[in-house]
Design a protein around this nucleic acid. Structure first.
Lengths: 206, 206
DNA sequence: CCTACCGATCGGTAGG
DNA sequence: CCTACCGATCGGTAGG
């Protein structure tokens, strides 16, 4: 009674169902980023898309299932953006810069579901985690090849696992401090990072 | 009935109360790190120190109050370790290395409350946050002075806010991937980091 | 610090 | 996708 709803003829086509599912993922992603997975209730998510509290379970079998879907959605968007960002870009340093900007935009600007991956890794059950890792590996493989090229070009000393994780860490941590209305743009940060990490005489040392 | 308790004479001295409080902080910190703040219940914490579920509220006025206390405790331990780590160490690079190792140990090894600060920043209310920031600033000030010296020595290009945050990010993110039984020691990571960040001919560029 | 408890809320389900 | 609801659990409190 208290809720106004459009009472159109129920034509539950597959396309409609897909749309509602996508809406739920988007709403859940936004809430997971803002409040965290545990602090977000199914009721919050249902409210955000104008459903009743029991209805999301028609689309997802559990809250955990929503989390997994949100993360995979975010990763797929990131993969698409990543491909677009480096398409046609030549040279290790240029590709590095392009990857950084794309990554930061995905994390900080695009209101995608990607940050959920960074925040809520712990909330994933082992089963869900395995599924997510499969997609994540594809995203990281592109970085690895660029880092390898940087070493070959003498701009980076090392592209081993630790170095890679330190690099990702610096970028991923930006979620914690970046503010859209702050004094630095995403491009500022990217340039600072390129400057911080690339060292022209890398081979000359030690 | 189901719980065995020592029924000694109740001598609630201030020292005892302080001990119980400290025990609660330690137990809460451990649980917050393992399961997250939201997923940890007062009952979990009470269980861990052998109390009943209502009793922690004798020592803390709310769960939020516990969170704040845990973070401040962690920061104070970090400050002490930091002072010890750089005491008597001369030279910008050596001090940098010492700070990194101390920081990583505090985060990864010492089972302190510090990581709660990294994980649960969002869970802090604004009031609590202000109190925590005051202590955090003291910890970061030491880093700032060392970074400034590195720039002066020509080993780092820049020590501005963004560079600083990228640096911290890389270290703080290690909580997400470091495993004590993994292939890298904390010292390995520290050495990789020094290598990654310091660039001898810093002034020669641009 | 325990006992006993409250009001609120949560994830999820049955049945339509 | 809604209605109506359940069992469980949670943070917190009164009174001792």
């Amino acid at each position: 009674m208290a809720v106004a709803r459009t009472k159109t003829k129920a034509r539950a086509s597959t396309a409609d169902e897909g749309n509602r599912r996508a809406e739920l993922i988007r709403a859940a992603g936004k809430l997971f980023v803002e409040k965290g997975f545990d602090a977000t209730t199914i009721r919050d998510i249902a409210d955000a898309v104008g459903m009743r509290s029991g209805s999301p379970f028609y689309h997802f079998k559990s809250k955990q299932d929503m989390l997994k879907s949100v993360m995979i959605e975010g990763l797929q968007a990131a993969l698409t953006a990543q491909q677009a960002a480096i398409a046609g870009v030549r040279g290790a340093e240029a590709r590095f810069r392009a990857l950084i900007k794309s990554h930061l935009r995905i994390i900080l600007e695009d209101h995608t579901e990607f940050p959920v991956l960074l925040y809520e890794w712990r909330a994933l059950t082992d089963d869900s985690r395995a599924e997510v890792i499969a997609v994540k590996d594809r995203y990281e493989a592109v970085w690895q090849s660029v880092l390898k090229d940087l070493v070959k070009a003498g701009l980076l000393k090392d592209d081993g696992r630790v170095t890679r994780l330190l690099l990702f860490g610096a970028f991923n941590w930006t979620v914690q401090w970046y503010r859209p209305d702050g004094e630095f743009t995403i491009d500022d940060i990217a340039e600072r990072a390129v400057d911080l990490y690339l060292c022209p005489q890398a081979e000359g040392r030690r």
